[in-house]
């Protein structure tokens, strides 16, 4: 479904005397169709850069990204994106926000009203469909954003720290709802999800695999297979197996961060090279 081969992203210097910034160094991994993969890492490890490159919103300095076997060299509309902030358009009602992708893709709204209702009912927002987003709480807004990302039935869902701004309870609730959405509806046509987060428990709870990124420049430090039974529940978090996964991932992030600090203390010839 997704393949990344030696992907590298170098931002040009901001000012004339500034240095170019290497955000992503040499990233190689793949995601199978229908797989739920989380990417965890300290802030500044190029996670958001990766999201933009996956969506075709940003050009890649070197390497290749394939989605559905096609090289990514621009936006490809078979994708749904959820950002950290809900990013709802405040002049559109909740329903109109959910239907926004159809307006952009020039698809008839009428054909999707059933789907919109189904999605909004699933996340408990159907009664709010005619309200403006400003009326909703943060969690409700993010639910609406999730519906919007799914309305045009993309095969790939990219989520960039979607629940990072929510309180712990809402976050857990949203995690379980996301799993329901992902597993429940379209059996056999499960969406591929790339989920960016800085919460290790969240990553373990949701994912088939967790990819640990090192700090800037971002690289794949390690990949963990999460062999926990599905469907997953909130209680799972207190199991020993879960804790062990979380601990192992945590230790890798520590190693990756320390390595980066050590690297920063030594001269960095790599930046001048490019």
């Amino acid at each position: 479904m997704i393949e990344l081969h030696h992907v590298r992203k170098l931002y040009p210097p901001r000012s004339r005397h500034g240095q170019p910034v290497l955000a992503v160094a040499d990233v190689t991994f793949d995601v199978a169709r229908g797989e739920f993969v989380s990417i965890v890492g300290p802030s500044g490890c190029g996670k958001s850069t990766l999201v933009k490159m996956l969506a075709g919103l940003m050009d890649i300095t070197a390497g290749e990204i394939y989605v559905n076997g096609q090289p990514v060299c621009g936006p490809h509309s078979d994708i749904g994106i959820v950002f950290q902030t809900p990013t709802l358009l405040k002049w559109r009602s909740v329903l109109d926000n959910v239907l926004l992708p159809l307006d952009i893709l020039r698809k008839p709204r009428l054909a999707f009203t059933e789907r919109a209702e189904e999605l909004l009912r699933l996340v408990g927002l159907w009664d709010f469909r005619n309200d403006y987003p400003s009326v909703l709480s943060g969690g409700m807004q993010q639910r609406a954003a999730l519906c919007r990302a799914l309305i045009h039935d993309p095969s790939l869902l990219v989520m960039d720290e979607p629940f990072g701004a929510l309180d712990a309870f809402t976050r857990e609730e949203m995690n379980l709802e996301l799993l329901k959405l992902w597993a429940g509806r379209e059996a056999g046509r499960q969406k591929t999800i790339v989920f960016i987060t800085h919460s290790i428990p969240e990553a373990v709870l949701l994912s088939d695999r967790v990819i640990v990124f090192s700090p800037r420049p971002g690289t794949v430090d390690s990949i963990f297979e999460i062999n926990l039974p599905r469907p997953r529940t909130a209680d799972l978090q207190y199991s020993e197996q879960f804790q062990a996964y979380a601990r192992n991932i945590r230790s890798r992030i520590g190693v990756a961060a320390n390595a980066a600090v050590a690297q920063q203390n030594t001269p960095r010839p790599t930046r001048a090279l490019v």
């Binding site: 933009k52 969506a55 075709g56 919103l57 621009g74 936006p75 490809h76 509309s77 994708i79 994106i81 950002f83 902030t85 990013t87 358009l89 926004l100 992708p101 307006d103 952009i104 893709l105 045009h152």
Partner: peptide
């Protein structure tokens, strides 16, 4: 909002759509 623009651009919006909708 930059994210809102990214959102419609990720759906291959035209510049006109970007103006009209965002």
């Amino acid at each position: 909002d930059g994210d809102a623009l990214d959102l419609v651009r990720s759906l291959r919006s035209t510049r006109w759509q970007e103006f009209v909708h965002i």
